[in-house]
Design a protein around this nucleic acid. Structure first.
Lengths: 211, 211
DNA sequence: ATAAATACTGTTTATTATATCAGTGTTCAT
DNA sequence: ATGAACACTGATATAATAAACAGTATTTAT
């Protein structure tokens, strides 16, 4: 969210405190008087700018038509999904709980269960619409159905792969034509470990400081 | 506290829910219209009685000068993002608040502000990694920076487009090579309307009943 | 039964607020 | 140094809103 200038902040705060106290917003004239402006247009133009930056919403032609857009508090202890680290770039270990952050998303949205999140590095799943930088939501489980996408641990590296299990081998397939498949005979099956099942992604277009 | 009559309760509740939704109280005329009264005085006398019983406080002569005394739990609602409908398949109107659901995600994750969600229909933004069925998170704003992706209303249809504004025209570009661009000279600029800025997506791989 | 409180209609007027048009400096990044 | 965003003044039109006055039914509690 674009930052307010000092003056804009003061006006925003005045509106917020007025709203708190009276339960309705001030009029433009009331704001003008508080700041000692000689013209209401000073207020009008400020409000327009504050609205453009997304902090308030104006209702055209309505008296006191100022709606404060609430800034959500980041400290709520709502249900959330732990972000464990990056995939294809290290070993995410939930036992250590050394997560960088929690995503403020209810696990219910992704079907519940023991969910965690991993930031996707690289283009290996691009054809499944999973891009570099996306946050993959994973449900912790040791086995997945044939053909499903899973987070798997190969050689101490976590990656997203589509998993195919036949009677005599295990195939890990990237969703990217330029990547080759991995195939493991059953005897080497223990070289890989399934961390969990891919349940979806969250993509934040501009970094919000969460990652 | 003396009890309100049925009618008074209904009016009080209407004011409370209006206040909840808009963050400012209704005018007497707005109350009149909602209840279908032929006269504003019906409202006036009701308000006077409700005030006498101590449920509201009126500010004489002030527009929307109604203060709720029994504060409705404004803080009971968990932060979430309203899902307004589908994009490229109808007109999402937040004024009507006819959302199908709320996504249990904190708006903070997508930078806060007045966020809403739209389900993406079609392949028009496939090259930006936005796929059919994804849920786009949009922040309500009237203008976006050049080259940003926005939800725009074209001919009463909402779509996601990358917006380019030059001195003499407005170009809407799909992120899909098989789609052609829309170009509007400045004179026709008002044919389109920007609903908000694209902030990211959420993709639930298996339907969770949220959509 | 009857007064008091409630639930309204109808009309007019005064006041409150917002919108619009036309400007002037000032700051700030390129 | 030059435009763009910011921070204002000033005047006027118009819409939005509340207040006031004068009533009529209906319900509710004595």
């Amino acid at each position: 969210m674009k930052k307010l200038t000092d003056k804009q902040s003061k006006i925003y705060e005045f509106i917020a405190s007025w709203q708190m106290k009276k339960s309705y917003p001030p009029t433009q004239a009331e704001i003008r008087d508080h700041f000692g402006f000689g013209s209401q247009n000073a207020v009008r133009s400020h409000l327009a700018l504050i609205e453009r930056k997304g902090y308030i919403r104006l209702s055209l032609g309505k008296a006191r038509g100022i709606k404060l857009i609430q800034i959500p508090n980041l400290f709520s202890k709502e249900p959330s999904i732990p972000l464990l680290g990056s995939i294809a770039a290290g070993v995410p270990l939930w036992e250590e709980q050394n997560f960088e952050d929690h995503l403020p998303i209810s696990p219910a949205l992704f079907g519940g269960g023991e969910l965690f999140a991993l930031k996707v590095i690289g283009e290996s799943m691009i054809d499944a619409g999973i891009r570099n930088g996306d946050v993959a939501i994973i449900r912790r489980q040791d086995v997945v159905d044939n053909g499903e996408i899973a987070a798997v641990l190969i050689d101490h590296e976590a990656t997203l792969k589509r998993v195919f299990l036949s009677s005599d081998s295990l195939i890990l397939k990237s969703e990217n034509a330029t990547f080759k498949n991995f195939e493991y005979p059953m005897s080497e099956k223990n070289l890989i470990r399934i961390l969990g099942r891919y349940m979806g992604i969250v993509r934040m277009e501009k970094n919000r400081g969460f990652l």
